[in-house]
Design a protein around this nucleic acid. Structure first.
Lengths: 220, 220
DNA sequence: CCGCATCCTCATGGATACTG
DNA sequence: CAGTATCCATGAGGATGCGG
């Protein structure tokens, strides 16, 4: 809203008038994990300027995407998605699924945070997230990060000593590639890119042959 | 890519690095209808500056979203979506569905073009577009605009004298509202907002059982 | 005509500093 | 903690030009 409108009576254009500006959808992504404070958003979105974050939040609030709440207990400001704003999960998931070819090149110098991977896994695995929690252990920068997937969502917990039998260790790239079905699970195990109980691997990523006809094919 | 990167190893951020800049997704929307020339895009996107359109097209081409073809017959440049770019339909559709609350306020001073409505109808109706072509007549500015929906897509034709039995006449807002299931079809007929064969109305907006569940193939 | 490139103005974004 | 204020760099928008 603070930016220029496209001035088109078209759903896409009007949607982009609201969430099309820089940082807006990334703010939504953070709030899709749960309500968050201003400072948490600022640190979760490296590189965002404080005035821009304030601007975008104001715009999203006035558009009805985000709610600004006052937590009386802690006497602090908390931002949360409205019901309508939470429906942007469809859009975010679609973009995440579309982005898989861009993720195969690896991290490079980009920053990485656990919740982003949780968001990606949720978008990519979809209904294959089993009802019983499954933990995916990611060894990033020496810290084992566990992504717990269950029917309601995914969250990241740090566990210095997780039970080995319930943890699969892999680089984020490998997990994303697996989720996108670009790498065969058996091949990944054979190459040592993925370690864990084969049965659990199958539980998370599914049998090599089943259940992914819904997913679009990958481009070149 | 011409803009600044978010520098995050996150699917959403990388996707927005490619298609998150201003006008990019609107260009994709136009190309989702079919391949188009530079001048057609310029006129279909009112308000875009020529250098910006060229910039965005260059970026989309180098990112692998759009192909720049040379039509030897007409000796002209034609832009078309790649296979990967065409998969942005999921994202566009998600945003269009999300935008329905923004469309209820009506056109206002915004410009309106028929293909935008076709895109919206396709996103909103989804599998309910029947296999046999159905025409929706839109009375805009005195001209009856027919949106033909079939299994492969939707296109707009101008017909000064369409056969009344196959045409439903309604304002764009009403059609969108109907598609979003915010208005009862019977109520709309009773109020005179929608005219046409009740059986055809039911075929377009009604039962969800008769359509083809197959997702349309990708555009050329 | 078509497919852009250049020029210029001004709104927007980014980084830092600062405040109630 | 939750933002403003400020300054500068960058990108958007509009007009025009130009070669094919």
């Amino acid at each position: 809203m603070s930016g220029r409108s496209y001035g088109q009576y078209c759903g896409l254009a009007r949607a982009l008038d609201v969430v099309g500006e820089r940082w807006s959808l990334l703010i939504v992504r953070e709030l899709l994990v749960g309500p968050a404070r201003y400072t948490h958003l600022a640190s979760a979105l490296p590189g965002v300027a404080s005035n821009l974050l304030a601007d975008r939040l104001r715009g999203l609030v006035s558009a009805g995407v985000v709610e600004r709440r006052l937590d009386p207990a802690s006497n602090s400001v908390v931002y949360a998605l409205t019901l309508w704003g939470a429906q942007l999960r469809e859009t975010v998931d679609a973009l995440v699924r579309w982005s898989t070819p861009l993720m195969r090149s690896g991290r490079g110098d980009d920053t990485f945070r656990g919740p982003w991977l949780a968001t990606a896994l949720r978008a990519l695995l979809g209904d294959r997230t089993s009802a019983t929690p499954v933990a995916v252990g990611l060894d990033t920068a020496g810290t084992v990060m566990m992504v717990q997937l269950d029917g309601t969502g995914a969250r990241v917990v740090l566990d210095p000593d997780p039970p080995p039998s319930t943890v699969l260790r892999a680089d984020p790239e490998v997990v994303l590639a697996l989720a996108a079905r670009t790498v065969n699970v058996d091949q990944a195990i054979a190459r040592g890119n993925l370690q864990g109980d084969p049965q659990e691997l199958a539980a998370v990523f599914g049998a090599a042959d089943s259940g992914n006809a819904r997913r679009p094919p990958l481009p070149t």
